[in-house]
Nucleic acid binder design. Structure first.
Lengths: 201, 201
DNA sequence: GTTGGCATGTAATTGGTTACATGATTGG
DNA sequence: CCAATCATGTAACCAATTACATGCCAAC
């Protein structure tokens, strides 16, 4: 029943386009320049992915004939794109996402504040923080059980993984602190602009 | 001319089979159970990958009709498989491998001791350790330059990445220590398993 | 007058995901 | 007998990699 999963790249693009309308080239540069380096960065991945998003009506594009340079096709997000983005960001923190390296979770988190607001971030961080220890313990007990029969380098590689997860756990506490302070300092302020959506006051 | 790159999964399988001849099912369980969770674990990926390895003569298989259970096809590595594994493990530590998350580097490292010996591990760790700081600094300067215009959650996600790389750097120092101690304690010993060669069956 | 950065695309190949199929054995 | 575990596989679909093609502009 795992239906129609838009691939991660699609969501990454959707999230970035949501932040501000952009061209394929800009998006590509974001991937190469920033820490999102794990994503494709190659035109053969990005342009087709944008086409798919447009085909599914999650984004719309417009060619800008702006001064001098070659025309650029600028994408902006649509209603249905927003809806998909929100649905994706609202998915629960699954243990298997943690096991798979937490890449997707971090990607989701990076877009979360703008799309869902600070309270959603806080909840996410709490779930993330509590999903980590069980997995860390699992890895540690595996290490304890097998360390004598594993080659040193394999053991160390596993230890590196454990350290990485511990670092994530510490980070999640720190991040939670940051958000709680933010909320504490601006208690009256609306954290997102989604208010006008539903209820009158 | 980046030719014929065996996909990572292929190398992961090759490395595991090198450790000991195994069946597809065992390999699959290793992926699900251990920290190598980032790799497929699905039969639709593993069995075809094994077939490819066999087609390329990097592994050979034999059906074992062992007691009671369904027959299992056990794979063992071939000469050419060993050669490919070694060549892969000997590849230099490329900065782009670091940028991509260092997954592949860690996978290589975990097999390295058995295949290339401790000295190769030491060299690898030195290269790895010195490849990290430039990238960490790059991320930090990006953060410094953009932190004011980034949403809090995006900034925190980036900080998580930086922490992860710092953790890897500390780990690499620690791992280096471990290997240097090992070499110090066994100075006469060949670190590659020379004697395993002439093993009396 | 050619290099290099901006900017968009396409085609062939290949590999992974998903879902399904099969079949033997053990235990409740 | 049914479910679970061991164990291997196949087929349809789709996305990513690689490599190539194009074209404009600025600067050296």
């Amino acid at each position: 029943m795992k239906n129609a999963k838009t691939p991660l790249l699609g969501y990454a693009l959707l999230g970035l386009i949501h932040l501000k309308p952009q061209s394929g080239y800009e998006l590509r540069k974001t991937f190469t320049d920033t820490a999102m380096g794990n994503y494709s960065d190659s035109p053969g991945a990005i342009y087709p992915a944008l086409k798919r998003l447009e085909r599914d009506a999650d984004v719309m594009s417009e060619v800008q004939e702006a001064g001098g340079l070659r025309r650029r096709r600028v994408y902006r997000i649509s209603e249905s794109g927003m809806a998909k983005l929100k649905a994706w960001l609202r998915e629960p923190v699954a243990p298997e996402d943690v096991r798979r390296g937490a890449d997707e979770l971090l990607l989701r988190f990076s877009f979360m504040e703008r799309v869902l607001g600070a309270t959603a971030c806080v909840e996410f961080l709490r779930n993330f923080a509590s999903a980590l220890p069980p997995y860390i313990e699992h890895l540690e007990s595996f290490l304890a059980a097998n360390s004598t029969v594993m080659p040193l380098s394999a053991r160390l590689a596993l230890e590196n993984g454990i350290r990485g997860y511990r670092s994530m756990h510490e980070w999640s506490q720190y991040a939670l602190q940051c958000f709680l302070e933010l909320e504490g300092n601006q208690p009256q302020q609306r954290r997102t602009k989604v208010r006008q959506k539903g209820r009158p006051s």
